[in-house]
Amino acid sequence: MKPLSERSFFFDAGEGHSLHVALFGNPGGVPVVFLHGGPGSGCNPGQRALFDPDRHFVVFVDQRGAGKSLPPRSRHANTTAHLIRDLEALRQDLTLPRWLVVGGSWGTTLGLAYAQAHPAACLGLALRAVFLGTRAELEAAFVTRLSTFYPDLFAALLARAGQQAPLEAIWRQILDPDPQVHRSAAFLWYDIERALSELRPASTTHSLRAADAPLPATPFMEASYFLNDCYLQPGELLENAGKLAGIPGILLQSRYDLLCPPSGTAALAARWPEAELRFVEVAGHSVSEPGVTAALRQAIRDLSEV
């Protein structure tokens, strides 16, 4: 059968949300669901390079309010529980008995939460840069490591958000309805996150944007989720790791990831015996870091043969 590399559609998730879904690869191949990061970033065609179109049948889904899903940037009825329900409804609609779950960063958060809720639906999990969705991880990344490695950006954050609880302050500014408030806050957050995402970032400073510069989408969804602890109970994903028993997994970790460092991934691996921890040396958070894409492609290939 001809690969469905160009087939896409909108899936009615209810509550006013229509999810953009793109199918890629061999309908008779190993089913895979790809979970993008952010939250809020959406899928892109370049992510197809992770998969073998002859071996895999990949479901790329833009989560609520992300990518091409409608309405854009909508935070109404948009929580982790809603996203888990969407994935399971989509799997059943596509009549896929089980699928391989692939994700990075926020995609690992959602992937773990989904697998813990629906373990029987998972062939395996290939997860890159594990984020357990905790406030402690965010404080460590955007306060401790930001101030250590990028003090100028940290100073810009404090100047904008104040000394007390700067993360909550900047997130609330991003969600402020006044464009005079949220535009500059969103661009600052975007610049900070980009610097922390790469081992050798192209820019380590915050720059002012023109009044008509298009706003990045992810800061708004991230602010909503992060203010609400990713709509998870404290430590939930680690405490419920036992629900992953029997599911094979490969945890891919860049050694010098400033956003999602090895400690979180190692903590998960210690509670999930079926998971194999693999390191990519001399690499940062982004999937575009040297060696990361190839390592993730290999992890997907290996789990496809289990």
Results as ranks from 00 to 15, higher is better:
Pro248Arg: 06
Thr108Glu: 01
Asn44Arg: 15
Ala155Pro: 07
Leu70Asn: 04
Pro214Lys: 05
Trp189Thr: 06
Ala165His: 14
Ser207Ile: 04
Tyr114Glu: 09
Arg255Val: 09
Phe220Met: 02
Asn228Ala: 12
Phe187Met: 03
Arg85Cys: 09
Asp178Val: 04
Pro201Ala: 11
Ala295Asp: 00
Gly133Gln: 00
Thr79Met: 04
Ala49Thr: 13
Pro262Gln: 09
Asp52Met: 05
Glu222Val: 15
Ala223Gly: 12
His56Leu: 01
Asp52Leu: 11
Arg297His: 13
Leu259Lys: 15
Trp99Asp: 04
Gly284Met: 00
Asp93Pro: 00
Ala269His: 08
Asp229Cys: 11
Gly104Ile: 07
Leu268Val: 07
Val292Ala: 02
Val101Asp: 06
Pro3Ser: 12
Tyr150Gly: 06
Ala270Arg: 13
Leu244Tyr: 03
Ser105Ile: 02
Ala155Gln: 14
Leu83Val: 11
Gly25Cys: 04
Leu100Gln: 09
Ala269Ser: 14
Phe57Gln: 12
Lys243Ser: 09
Arg64Leu: 06
Glu305Tyr: 05
Gly28His: 13
Ala129Arg: 01
Gly107Pro: 02
Glu289Ala: 12
Glu289Cys: 06
Pro119Val: 07
Thr79Pro: 04
Phe11Glu: 10
Phe51Gly: 03
Ala155Cys: 08
Arg301Ala: 13
Ser147Ala: 15
Ala169Ser: 15
Met221Thr: 15
Pro179Phe: 07
Gln116His: 02
Leu123Ser: 14
Pro290Gln: 01
Pro45Ser: 11
Leu87Lys: 05
Pro151Glu: 04
Leu94Asp: 10
Ala299Thr: 01
Ala89Glu: 09
Ser263Met: 05
Thr148Val: 00
Gly235Glu: 03
Phe149Ser: 12
Val143Cys: 15
Ser5Met: 11
Pro45Tyr: 11
Ala217Ser: 15
Thr204Tyr: 00
Leu157Trp: 00
Phe11Gly: 09
Pro177Phe: 01
Ala66Glu: 02
Leu4Gln: 15
Leu158Phe: 00
Pro201Phe: 06
Asn44Pro: 01
Glu198Arg: 14
Glu276Tyr: 00
Ala267Thr: 08
Gly40Arg: 03
Ala169Trp: 04
Arg7Asn: 07
Leu199Ser: 09
Pro166Cys: 05
Ala294Trp: 02
Pro179Ala: 08
Glu239His: 13
Arg209Trp: 01
Ala126Arg: 07
Glu222Pro: 00
Phe10Cys: 09
Leu237Pro: 12
Phe279Ser: 09
Thr148Pro: 00
Glu168Cys: 03
Gly246Asp: 11
Val59Pro: 05
Cys43Leu: 07
Ala81Gln: 13
Gly104Asp: 06
Glu274Arg: 08
Leu199Glu: 07
Arg128Gly: 09
Thr148Ser: 13
Ala211Thr: 14
Gly264Met: 01
Gln47Trp: 15
Ala140Arg: 14
Ala283His: 01
Phe11Arg: 10
Phe226Met: 15
Val58Asp: 08
Gln63Arg: 15
Ala77Tyr: 12
Arg145Ile: 01
Ser18Met: 14
Asp212Gln: 14
Pro39Phe: 07
Ala165Val: 01
Thr134Gly: 11
Leu70His: 08
Ser263His: 11
